[in-house]
């Protein structure tokens, strides 16, 4: 090709694109999907549709790791762990998008087998085709987190090795960080003496969030725990919110999650730290949000 032809092509092509914006340019997908409805699975599916479909995030042949909160030996109606139907829908969508393997795991706080079983997540995820694995001490490796406070910590390698990481927290109150949402969910991906992180919980949560960087965060707020967090114990400690919040920006998802507890995002130290760290934005007025009901 002659240089002149090449330049001509570029100019003509560029003009064509410029004049017809709908031809190639991406439509501006919403940054945050907030979907309300009766079925946890259906609102999860709808949220992904709002964001542009799971195939936008998961490619053919990907190894996907889904990280719900399976921390406690509690049944779904206690809202201490992620809703199993939300997890099931995400597993199904990942496989539909062509994922080679979907693994679901969490480093639990109560006895692992009891948490996996009684949360209902093990059965739901397996039925959808995922491998549900207990975390394995042999897979812990001390890694450099390059955090402000956490310089290094033991991390389960499964979370680092996965091609795509989907964070699926459940919305709960917490007496130190006030709420526990997506960023704090990464405490379940690490080993060591996790409880020491509470001495500077906001900074710890941001350091972990900066390290793990999920492909997607899907906040389960179908049933939120508003009292006696983070594990509740009575159904009366929970409230039906029937909502799922999904987005790529983990800070925006958490900021929206805070509103379920009548907390303004700017009141939360960890969100401010996260934003100044460049992890996302908590100022919801600057976020493209699409709300739907199904």
């Amino acid at each position: 090709m002659e240089r002149r032809d090449f330049l001509k092509n570029i100019i003509v092509g560029g003009l064509a694109l410029k004049l017809s914006p709908g031809l190639l340019a991406q439509p501006a997908w919403p940054e945050l999907a907030v979907v309300e409805g009766e079925s946890p699975a259906a609102i999860t599916r709808e949220a992904l549709k709002v964001l542009g479909g799971m195939s936008k995030f998961v490619s053919r042949g990907d190894k996907v790791l889904i990280k719900p909160n399976i921390g406690w030996d509690r049944t779904p109606e206690m809202a201490a762990c992620t809703n199993p139907e939300v997890v099931r829908a995400l597993v199904e969508m990942s496989l539909e998008a062509g994922a080679k393997e979907v693994v679901v795991m969490d480093h639990t706080i109560n006895q692992p087998k009891r948490c996996y079983t009684r949360s209902g997540i093990q059965d739901a995820a397996r039925a959808a085709g995922a491998r549900v694995l207990f975390t394995d001490e042999q897979r812990l490796k001390k890694m450099s987190l390059r955090g402000e406070w956490l310089k290094e910590w033991e991390v389960f390698q499964d979370f680092v090795e996965a091609d795509k990481l989907i964070n699926v927290p459940v919305a709960k109150v917490h007496s130190l960080s006030r709420v526990t949402l997506g960023l704090k969910n990464w405490l379940g991906a690490i080993g060591g003496n996790r409880n020491q992180l509470h001495q500077k919980i906001d900074q710890a949560v941001v350091d972990l969030g900066a390290f793990f960087k999920p492909t997607l965060t899907v906040l389960d707020a179908y049933r939120v725990l508003f009292r006696n967090g983070p594990q509740g114990g009575r159904v009366s400690d929970t409230r039906l919110q029937k909502t799922v919040v999904a987005g790529v920006d983990p800070v925006a998802v958490d900021a929206y999650g805070a509103t379920f507890f009548e907390i303004k995002p700017q009141e939360l130290t960890f969100l401010k730290l996260a934003q100044s760290r460049g992890l996302g934005k908590f100022e919801l007025e600057k976020v493209r949000i699409e709300k739907r009901a199904v």
């Binding site: 917490h174 007496s175 130190l176 409880n195 509470h198 001495q199 919980i201 967090g229 594990q231």
Partner: peptide, 8 residues
């Protein structure tokens, strides 16, 4: 700060 016992 530490509320670990309360949390559990």
């Amino acid at each position: 700060p530490c509320i670990v016992c309360e949390e559990h």
